[in-house]
Amino acid sequence: MADIANVYKADNTRYEKMKYNRVGRSGLKFPAVSLGLWHNFGSRDNYDNMKQMLRTAFDMGITQFDLANNYGPVYGSAETNFGTIMEADFRPYRDELIITTKAGYDMWDGPYGDGGSRKYLMASIDQSLKRMKLDYVDIFYHHRMDRETPLEETMQALADIVRSGKALYAGVSNYDKEYTEKAAAMLRELHCPFVINQRRYSIFDRTIEEDGVKEFCREAGVGVIAFSPLAQGMLTDKYLGGIPKDSRIGRDPRFLRAEALTEKRLDQIARLNELAAKRGQTLAQMALSWVLRDGDVCSVLIGASRPSQILETRTVFEHTCFSEEEIRKIDEISRETFEA
């Protein structure tokens, strides 16, 4: 018999707590803040903490959960854990959720578990749906450019996945301007709803501006969702007093190494932290507000290791106005070149 005391019931005021932005020129809307399951939802992580983070997110109006086939570790475990929580807590709310997944990076042994081939993508969507206990995902992304596979093959696979009902929309991730432009044209010809490019974007990483993707997506009516908006945790105050043992560097240095926190970088972080305090924000809050500042990015994709980090983002979409002096100061601090 189910434990009635532990049956999840979502907060009735959740939609009053979040802003929802249109995704490009589509009819879809994203919450200004979305939750990514890249880290902290794998086989080595605490299940009760995962469940509480997802509950916390949805209770504050975060309706989008972003995954990929190889999120973990181990590969696939984030989708498996999400599927278990989906079944236990979120089944009644499925139509209120945007659930996304991706394929494109290394997933299984052999030549068919990586890249952009039709074989890989078709097999991957089926595996992902099974792990997540879903009939469909809202968006299926190709996770990266694959210059060894004809783009026409990859886009045809995405279109067929959407046509089959296994995904409602198609997206791309980590695509540059050339590939985004070509993908958009191909999917338009295939009458496939292409709505989003997911790219890394933060105060410290502005490649999306420099390579023209942000401008192209704005003009073409394609949405942009930003991942790593906190630069793997560097755009927070957590490293100003040293490296905490429970931080990402302390637990898993694959994506951010201690040597990245040079004296120069820490000085930049400290000065940005001071600027954020003058705005009445934490550095993390200011960094997220900055990504959302001009309306070109429809959602910031956050990661979290505990519910309190999700709660910290509650007001970031209310503070996206920056003065010219604040923008100038952020640019000045963040774009200083490091001495050799």
Rank of each mutant, 00 (worst) to 15 (best):
165 G>E: 04
114 D>E: 11
338 F>M: 06
230 L>I: 12
37 L>V: 08
29 K>L: 11
102 K>F: 04
68 A>H: 04
278 K>F: 07
201 Y>G: 12
253 P>N: 14
105 Y>I: 13
107 M>L: 11
329 K>L: 13
18 M>F: 10
108 W>S: 10
148 E>Y: 12
48 D>F: 13
92 P>A: 08
259 E>L: 10
122 M>H: 08
293 R>Q: 05
38 W>C: 09
158 L>V: 07
266 L>Y: 08
187 L>S: 03
314 R>M: 11
83 G>Y: 03
323 S>K: 07
85 I>D: 00
189 E>M: 15
303 G>I: 01
94 R>S: 05
44 R>E: 14
293 R>M: 01
192 C>D: 01
113 G>P: 01
97 L>Q: 03
25 R>E: 14
166 K>N: 06
20 Y>D: 06
42 G>W: 04
242 G>P: 01
329 K>Q: 12
222 V>E: 00
99 I>S: 03
272 L>F: 13
117 S>T: 14
261 L>V: 11
314 R>F: 07
95 D>I: 09
136 Y>L: 02
311 L>C: 09
242 G>Y: 05
109 D>I: 05
202 S>W: 08
125 I>D: 00
237 D>E: 15
137 V>K: 00
339 E>A: 08
334 S>P: 06
108 W>E: 12
192 C>N: 03
237 D>A: 15
28 L>H: 06
122 M>L: 09
85 I>S: 02
130 K>T: 07
102 K>C: 04
102 K>V: 09
79 E>N: 11
39 H>A: 13
265 R>L: 12
135 D>T: 08
297 V>L: 03
151 L>S: 05
167 A>Q: 03
159 A>K: 12
54 L>A: 04
103 A>Y: 01
144 R>Q: 09
22 R>Y: 07
239 Y>V: 05
162 V>N: 01
123 A>D: 14
43 S>T: 13
191 H>Q: 14
282 T>E: 06
155 M>D: 01
71 Y>N: 03
182 K>D: 15
262 T>G: 02
206 R>D: 08
19 K>P: 04
83 G>R: 05
261 L>C: 09
3 D>P: 07
1 M>F: 09
235 L>E: 04
291 V>Y: 02
197 N>W: 09
87 E>H: 13
34 S>W: 00
213 V>C: 11
339 E>R: 10
160 D>W: 05
100 T>P: 02
94 R>C: 04
310 I>L: 02
319 H>F: 06
21 N>H: 12
33 V>M: 02
47 Y>W: 10
5 A>E: 11
35 L>A: 10
185 A>D: 15
249 I>G: 03
47 Y>V: 13
2 A>M: 11
83 G>W: 01
299 S>T: 08
185 A>F: 12
146 D>M: 01
314 R>T: 06
49 N>Y: 09
68 A>C: 07
191 H>G: 08
285 Q>E: 11
258 A>I: 10
154 T>H: 12
292 L>P: 00
297 V>D: 02
30 F>T: 10
56 T>M: 01
296 D>G: 13
328 R>H: 14
228 S>H: 08
335 R>K: 10
170 A>F: 15
258 A>Y: 11
196 I>M: 15
184 A>T: 10
59 D>Y: 02
109 D>Y: 06
285 Q>N: 03
287 A>K: 04
225 I>T: 15
68 A>M: 02
71 Y>H: 07
151 L>C: 02
292 L>R: 00
151 L>P: 02
